[in-house]
Amino acid sequence: MSMKDFQCVLGRMIAIPSFARAVALDAGGESNANGAMASYDLEERERTRAIAAAGGTRMEVLTLLYRGARAAPIMRFCAITCELLGEDRLHDLLVAYWEQGPRSSAYYRDEVRGFASFVAGRDDVEPSIKDAAAIEGALVELERAVMPERYREVRLGDEVADVQPVLHTACRLLWLNENPSASTDVSGGHEKAPRRWPVLVDSRRDGINAVSVLPPSEVALVRECDGRRSLGALCEHHGVRWERSSLAHWAVLMARSNPAA
């Protein structure tokens, strides 16, 4: 018996309901070369089992449980995105997301990140909802970020001239589709609006504080923090006063504790 192929058929029926419906119709016996299971190496008993399993409401329940398990972390960790979409659109997007294919990972971070990326790539989703998905996806991804050994946070009051920082593992720069803070737009509409707006996502902070708008100079500085350039030089180049910067107050950067190590 080809147990492997049989388990493939069973799993595929659960993950892809249209396949289950096709198998339910595949009652032509071993000679049915064009049936849904034609490409699988199944013995007759396995074919019979698969057809029997496909036809009932229990397969629908298994699919429901499978999809429910996939939906649960999305609804928990992308709550704002789900709220903005509304029940009907959320349902349609989830079904479209699931029909992309089954999950290879059993871990919620991968599911949430996958859904957030899916939403971000949709033409039929408003930019503001894409932004919400991007932020929530990033927060989940950063949730369990751990600072590497022998690294320390670069804080206010630190001597930074020779420090060679990188962005903290708990932080990420995101470029949003819409201006997250109208109050920062002081141009009165006279300047050309940027195509994307940078925000800092910091998983160490709660709620609305997890998302911050950085001044353009600090954004430019962060983008050049590659662990090889000195913070002092970067501050001078971008006109950032370290002791007054958000980067210092929020300890957004990290560096090796002993650069010689």
Partner: peptide
């Protein structure tokens, strides 16, 4: 809990404990 649902790649995590014969 895992089976190849699509060609190639790692077996999909199907969630839940699926029945054996």
């Amino acid at each position: 809990t895992r089976a190849h649902v699509e060609d190639g790649g790692s077996p999909a995590a199907l969630m839940g404990n699926l029945p054996l014969a």
